Amino acid sequence: MLARALFGALAGVSLAAGIAGGLWRLGVAVPDPLSFASAGQVLLVHAALMVCGFLGTVIGIERAVAVKQRWAFLAPLASGTGALCLAFGQQAAGAWLGVAAAMVFLAVNALVVRRQRAAHTLLLALGAAAWVAGNLLFAAGRDGGAVFPWWFAFLVMTIAAERLEMTRLMRRRPAAGAALHALLLLLLAGAACSGAAPLAGGLAYGVALALLAAWLAVFDIARRTLFTHGISRYMAVCLLGGYAWLGIAGVAWAAAALGWPARDAALHALGLGFVVSMVMGHAPVVLPAIARIKLRFGAFFYLPLVALHLSLFVRLALGSFSVPLRAAGASLNAAAIIFFAVTVAGAAVAWRIQHGAEGARKAR
């Protein structure tokens, strides 16, 4: 119980500091959790808090629970503690703790591959290796152009691997699997080239993201579960909406490489539109498994999801014409994430109330 509270607190602090840092960077009046003189450093640390601190910690906990090895929890412990260091301005300590977290996480995934050698476990290991590469570059002081592609490759490959596992029993042509592997290799090649050759690397990365979005939209089981009911339909809506944002992110990433003012769209269509949609979709299933929290699912789960997509439209579409609208959209992004956290907490309370009442009736 104490360990779950500690990891939950580390992930929560990372998320709160990351949101505050992102809002502060756009001029929204929130307390500044960072102590950096350069706006570029603030952007990089904001991303580190969100990707490595929050998402890295949550994914690390999920994998540690799955392998059932105590040492595996060193990864989320290091990533969460590293994020805490970053939030208080200790960049070097935070960055190298992030490297340690990624290295342990890679070892955890190597164990998974040894236990079950399959396409999806190999992709999980490649995603972990991408996290190691990104964290090493961050610790070495490289800029976002070199670091971000590796961090997002970690998240994208992890999600793609999990979706591949979920759909492994679906019938599809052998060429479909080969196409997926080719797209993910193109993604890694784009990440590797982005630091030294931003144009070629950015174009390759953007094309890979856009084509991956099309692959997922065509071959993911969400196309079928969209026509079911309850939590299955909700997950499908989250997934398919996320794939749409992934496609937009790919186009924006390539456009930014060509010099168009599309960097904010590339980063946040990918980080919020795609990744957070995946988090919202999987949370009702994953949270009970890793946190032993049971949720009462209902249509109210759609509300923060709709809020997220609308806030992204304000930020990325309307905000491209107006700086104040862009900042307002970012504030609404933060509100949507907080709204989802409140929704999950409310669903947990609702489940306890419902089952407590049922228990009381049975006792009578």
Rank of each mutant, 00 (worst) to 15 (best):
145 G>K: 00
180 L>Q: 13
167 T>S: 14
170 M>G: 01
158 T>L: 08
155 L>D: 01
165 E>L: 15
180 L>C: 06
178 A>R: 14
176 A>E: 12
166 M>W: 08
147 V>F: 08
166 M>H: 09
179 A>L: 15
179 A>W: 15
147 V>I: 12
165 E>I: 07
176 A>L: 04
166 M>F: 13
160 A>R: 03
166 M>A: 15
176 A>K: 09
157 M>A: 03
169 L>Y: 13
163 R>F: 04
162 E>Q: 14
145 G>M: 00
177 G>P: 00
167 T>N: 09
160 A>E: 03
165 E>K: 15
155 L>H: 03
166 M>I: 08
156 V>C: 04
173 R>M: 08
178 A>N: 04
151 W>F: 15
176 A>G: 06
163 R>H: 07
160 A>M: 04
179 A>F: 12
180 L>P: 10
179 A>E: 15
172 R>L: 08
174 P>G: 07
153 A>L: 08
162 E>W: 07
169 L>M: 14
177 G>H: 02
164 L>Y: 07
159 I>C: 04
158 T>D: 04
151 W>C: 08
147 V>K: 05
149 P>A: 10
151 W>H: 14
177 G>W: 01
174 P>D: 11
174 P>W: 07
170 M>F: 14
150 W>F: 11
153 A>N: 10
163 R>W: 07
168 R>E: 15
153 A>R: 10
158 T>H: 03
157 M>Y: 02
165 E>C: 12
177 G>I: 01
169 L>D: 09
180 L>M: 12
163 R>G: 06
170 M>A: 15
173 R>D: 08
180 L>D: 07
168 R>N: 09
154 F>H: 15
168 R>T: 13
